[in-house]
Computed example of a mutant assay.
Amino acid sequence: MLLDYGYTSIYLKSNSRNKIEYVYNSKNRNYDVVILGSSRANNHFVSEMFKKKGLKTFNYGISGGHLFEADLMLKLMLERNYKIKTVILETDLNLSNDKRSETVAAKFLPYIHDSEIIKRHFENEADFNELYYLPFYRYINFDALIGFREMYKTLSQQPTSLLDKGGYYALGNKKGNMKNDIRNLKPLRNKYYEAIKRLCKANKINCIAVMTPMCENTKGMNYFDKVKKNYPEIHNYENVVTEDKYFSSCGHMNDAGARLFTARIINDFFKTK
């Protein structure tokens, strides 16, 4: 019990190591644009380009994240009285599952006893009873993510780069896997995407859902057509940038590609700003 209390107390005082605690330990922020999604948001939307257009923007995309976490992030922002005009939601490959991301969801667990919203979000998870009722279980079970090492780094206020550049993380030109096969992916009627849409509507937030680019060597590109059939309101930008020189890996653009893509988004949705 004492260890649980000690670890949790440290996380409750930090807002500088990752985007989740940056939101959790905050209040009353105002944004013209908030970006949510996975690495395909984190690496693809250049915050400074929005800012140059006079749009106060932060990229809250999280590498490895699913829509489970994007929904929870938005709920926490609204609870903290964020004023948000527009949410840009990366909604493509992450529609193919409605499970949590083990690596990202764990970062919410230090706050599960402090937050009714986080508690409710995890209530239907198979391991909820252990996570909620067993003292210190979550810190042991997710030791690599929220255990001693991360607690110590948080306590000693060791910086990360996750909050730099308005939350945008630029990838370089070194090529990773430049082939991809998404033929087995099937877009769902995703309950977390549906929840995000409802939250935006209820709070008068303009929700722009987009599919972001993939390299030319991807097999199964009709996945994006299936998404469009399920959700006609999602804007399909998967073929806006295609040349390999603009990609760091098949599913992630480098900085040059991200800037081309961001310029197109700004022109299509914010050109009157």
Results as ranks from 00 to 15, higher is better:
Asp4Tyr: 01
Thr8Pro: 01
Ser9Ala: 11
Ser9Pro: 00
Leu12Tyr: 08
Ser16Tyr: 13
Arg17Ile: 11
Val23Ala: 04
Ser26Gln: 06
Val34Ser: 03
Gly37Phe: 03
Gly37Ile: 00
Ser39Tyr: 04
Asn42His: 15
Asn43Pro: 02
Val46Ala: 00
Ser47Tyr: 05
Met49Asp: 12
Lys56Ala: 06
Phe58Glu: 03
Ser63Trp: 01
Leu67Asp: 06
Leu67Ala: 04
Arg80Tyr: 04
Arg80Phe: 05
Asn81Val: 00
Tyr82Ser: 02
Leu89Thr: 03
Leu89Trp: 04
Leu93Asn: 05
Asn97Cys: 08
Asn97Pro: 01
Lys99Trp: 07
Glu102Asp: 14
Ala105Glu: 06
Lys107Gln: 13
Phe108Trp: 07
Leu109Val: 07
Ile118His: 09
Ile118Leu: 09
Arg120Phe: 13
His121Pro: 05
Glu123Gly: 11
Glu125Lys: 10
Ala126Phe: 14
Leu131Ser: 09
Tyr132Trp: 03
Tyr132Glu: 00
Arg138Lys: 14
Tyr139Arg: 02
Asn141Ile: 00
Leu145Asp: 08
Ile146Glu: 00
Ile146Gln: 02
Gly147Met: 04
Arg149Glu: 15
Met151Gly: 09
Thr154Cys: 07
Thr154Gly: 00
Gln157Ser: 12
Pro159Phe: 00
Lys165Ile: 03
Lys165Pro: 02
Gly166Trp: 05
Gly167Met: 00
Leu171Phe: 04
Gly172Glu: 03
Asn173Glu: 11
Asn173Arg: 08
Lys174Thr: 14
Gly176Ser: 05
Asn177Cys: 09
Met178Val: 00
Lys179Leu: 07
Asn180Trp: 11
Asn180Asp: 13
Asp181Phe: 11
Arg183Val: 02
Asn184Met: 08
Leu185Arg: 10
Asn190Pro: 02
Tyr193Asp: 09
Glu194Ile: 14
Lys197Ser: 13
Cys200Ser: 10
Cys200Thr: 06
Lys201Asp: 15
Asn203Cys: 07
Ile205Asn: 05
Pro213Ser: 10
Cys215Pro: 03
Glu216Cys: 06
Thr218Tyr: 11
Gly220Arg: 06
Gly220Phe: 12
Gly220Asn: 11
Lys226Gly: 07
Lys228Arg: 14
Tyr231Leu: 13
Pro232Arg: 14
Glu233Phe: 13
Ile234Arg: 14
Ile234Lys: 09
His235Asp: 14
Tyr237Gln: 08
Tyr237Lys: 12
Tyr237Phe: 15
Val241Leu: 13
Phe247Gln: 08
His252Gln: 14
His252Ile: 05
Met253Asn: 12
Met253Tyr: 09
Ala256Glu: 15
Leu260Gly: 03
Leu260Tyr: 09
Phe261Lys: 07
Phe261Ser: 08
Ile265Cys: 08
Asn267Trp: 03
Asn267Pro: 04
Phe270Tyr: 09
Thr272Asp: 15
